[in-house]
């Protein structure tokens, strides 16, 4: 309970939770990221948008430690850090919820949330402790859609599964949660549930990066929007300062009016 409060205080300061400066990454001759800057603050939802191939996945995998960046600076809570593998990222408090969720259908909700990090008493599993903590986490996220945490994941709907995956990511005092297309496969009502949950994460004081193709979702839930355009950060703007059509222009052309890449920069790319 003390964790969100501490983060909320940090949100008031000027130090971003995550800051990337001048990140580059190439795969062979292909330059995927070309000097990307990004700031993510605690208590805010930062949407990361961009067309296919803009470099969203590469950027996120670098933050999570799956790929290494070629060059650039990586700050977490104001301090420069070296993240070369997923374990380091987890230790910092960075959790990624992938699109395929990585849940075991044959296990129940509690088992999935604690998978690989089971709480034990001697050699035996401490089921009571895990169930209590799972319940507490779900309650903390104001989740009302799960009747029993002892039902197998196979019996859950797509939205409920997304909920379980997100709840798992915040069990471990995480500070930054990265969500990869959490609403891509969901219907209208379930999308609404998941977006409410995403909002709740930020309101609990966590930093949230939301990758999405759905601008409706982005405009509804995000506090600021970072637009990647062919490996460059076209702009990171406050959601309240832009219109939907401006974001579309930023995604498709790299610039919109006086925001975005300079015309010269945008053309160099082409």
């Amino acid at each position: 309970m003390s964790e969100p409060d501490a983060s909320a205080v940090a949100a008031g300061t000027d130090t971003p939770l995550l800051e990337l400066r001048g990140i580059t990454k190439s795969f062979g001759a292909v330059e995927v990221l070309r000097g990307v800057d990004l700031k993510v603050r605690s208590g805010r939802v930062t949407a990361l948008v961009g067309d296919n191939g803009a470099g969203k996945s590469t950027l996120i995998k670098g933050v999570a430690g799956i790929h290494n960046f070629d060059a650039g600076e990586y700050f977490f809570e104001g301090a420069p850090v070296e993240v070369h593998d997923p374990k380091t990222a987890n230790a910092l408090g960075i959790e990624v919820v992938y699109q395929d969720l990585a849940l075991c259908n044959n296990l129940d909700v509690v088992h999935n949330m604690f998978l690989g990090r089971e709480v034990t008493r001697g050699v035996t599993l401490n089921e009571d402790e895990m169930e209590t903590r799972a319940r507490k986490t779900l309650d903390g996220l104001a989740v009302r859609t799960l009747h029993s945490v002892r039902q197998p994941v196979a019996s859950l709907s797509g939205g409920q599964r997304q909920t379980v995956a997100i709840a798992r990511s915040v069990l471990w005092n995480s500070k930054l949660v990265i969500l990869d297309e959490p609403t891509a496969a969901l219907g209208v009502a379930q999308t609404e549930q998941v977006l409410r949950l995403v909002r709740q994460l930020a309101d609990n004081g966590l930093g949230v990066i939301l990758i999405s193709h759905n601008l409706g979702d982005v405009m509804q839930v995000a506090d600021d929007i970072a637009v990647l355009y062919l490996g460059q950060m076209a702009a990171q703007v406050d959601t309240k300062d832009v219109q939907r059509n401006q974001v579309v222009e930023l995604i498709t052309a790299g610039r919109s009016g006086d925001i975005g890449l300079s015309p010269a920069m945008a053309e160099v790319v082409l």
Partner: peptide, 12 residues
């Protein structure tokens, strides 16, 4: 628990 997990979804 891990045996069931591997059998249910090895990648997870």
């Amino acid at each position: 628990r891990h045996v069931y997990a591997v059998g249910g979804n090895a990648e997870a």
